[in-house]
Design a binder for these strands. Structure first.
Length: 400
DNA sequence: TCTGGGGTCCTAGGACCC
DNA sequence: TCTGGGGTCCTAGGACCC
């Protein structure tokens, strides 16, 4: 018997959640009903659209547009800054409301999740009944709207929740694939982005239905191993049915766009130090160690470059992360002035297989590890970044 | 005042080993 | 004189997602 999977997706999440925050603070009107977007800080060169109201959408404003573009499309546009603490708070409220019904929930992002309805289906009249129940409860109790997609696998549930918005429940059963999904433009298929859609259109594939019926062998010439997966998806076939209640992160990264392009090595080092602190703290919070450290750069031409190093011994010590990332940066021999810099930790393990090397001073390592612990404790007690080590600069305020 | 930040997965090529 | 091939690990970059 098929499973019944639901996908719950908050409509204009960041905008809705900021709207609620403002109403709470006594704002007289609801920014959801106006020409408003949530956008980054232009003076810090982060001026893009993170979320938009429905009226803005109608004018053609898209997520990730520059605010400059957005204002061209809508001169009376109002821009509000994101508040990630608020978003986290609302996200928690949403998922805890849903958890009242079942533990079988996979959090997919801050504003989306999958829910396995199969084990609880006998408690309700129908899946539609249940979907409307949770949708309306969220609207009435939490104050924002969601879309709910119902299907027999995650892919199709997600496709369904995207059909028409806001505040809607949609189904996409097997016998509805042809009528509801095939007419959609190929760009609407989950996993098909700009590059792939361009390639597909050159092959005459313009709708999901076109792809569903396309010759596999011919598609393989252009998409190699991805061809079968693509055609399967267009036919609503997705073997990933597992609801992952919690999945271990594969990597931890922090990156920051600099408010001006930077060439000086000393300045780069300062950013690397702050980033090391950030990723190190997050790593230690999870009781993990990293065995790969990568430094990521974006130059003024928006070209991304990265360099990584596999460590003999996994680490979670800020000073080690810093020293290694400095070395990696030096090896990159970067000559361009850079716009963004980041550190990514990969190959996360729960223990460090530390081998004593001849040149290593274990006392130092213990000292550094102890220092991290003290700093972490004080920061968690009195608010993050109460303590900053010398030379550290503010790089990021996001709590996640 | 033009273009974020945090992720995952895939691919291709090189090194190295047997 | 000609010139294996399979497997694994590592790295850099690309594509895509929210």
């Amino acid at each position: 018997m098929d499973k019944i999977i639901m996908h719950i997706d908050v409509n204009n999440a960041f905008l809705s959640w900021t709207a609620l925050e403002l109403l709470d603070k006594g704002y007289k009107y609801d920014i959801r009903n106006s020409y408003a977007v949530i956008g980054g800080d232009e003076s810090k060169r982060r001026g893009i659209v993170l979320a938009k109201s429905n009226s803005c959408k109608k004018l053609g404003i898209k997520t990730a547009d520059t605010l400059f573009e957005a204002r061209n499309k809508c001169p009376s546009l109002k821009v509000y800054p994101p508040n990630y603490y608020q978003y986290q708070k609302m996200s928690k409220k949403l998922f805890s409301l849903l958890s009242e019904y079942t533990p079988d929930i996979e959090v997919f992002s801050i504003d989306e999740c999958f829910l396995d309805y199969t084990p609880i289906k006998n408690r309700y009249k129908s899946e539609l009944d249940f979907a409307y129940l949770i949708k309306d409860r969220i609207k009435n109790e939490l104050g924002f709207t969601v879309n709910v997609g119902i299907s027999y696998n995650k892919l199709c549930a997600k496709m369904a929740s995207d059909f028409s918005k806001p505040d809607k429940v949609h189904t996409l059963y097997k016998d509805e694939i042809k009528s509801k999904m095939w007419p959609l433009p190929i760009d609407d298929l989950f996993g098909v982005g700009k590059k792939s859609s361009l390639k597909l259109k050159k092959l005459g594939i313009n709708t999901i239905g076109d792809l569903a019926c396309f010759d596999v062998a011919k598609l393989q010439i252009y998409f190699k191993n991805q061809a079968i997966r693509l055609i399967n998806m267009a036919n609503g076939i997705d073997d990933d049915l597992i609801i992952r209640k919690y999945s271990e992160p594969k990597g931890i990264s922090n990156e920051t766009t600099l408010d001006h392009d930077v060439v000086s090595k000393e300045e780069v080092y300062k950013y690397l130090f702050s980033l090391s602190e950030l990723v190190g703290l997050r790593l230690r919070k999870q009781n993990k160690y990293a065995s790969v450290i990568a430094v990521v750069l974006k130059d003024k031409y928006f070209r991304r470059k990265s360099h990584q190093k596999k460590l003999d011994n996994a680490t979670n010590i800020t000073s080690e992360i810093y020293e290694i990332s400095k070395k990696i940066y030096d090896e990159m021999d970067n000559k361009d002035s850079i716009r963004l810099i980041g550190i990514r930790l990969d190959g996360l393990t729960t223990n460090t297989f530390h081998q004593i090397s001849m040149f290593e001073n274990l006392d130092d390592r213990d000292k550094d590890s102890g220092l991290d612990k003290v700093v972490d404790e004080i920061n968690s007690k009195y608010g993050s970044r109460t303590i900053k080590k010398a030379g550290s600069i503010e790089v990021n305020k996001k709590p996640f």
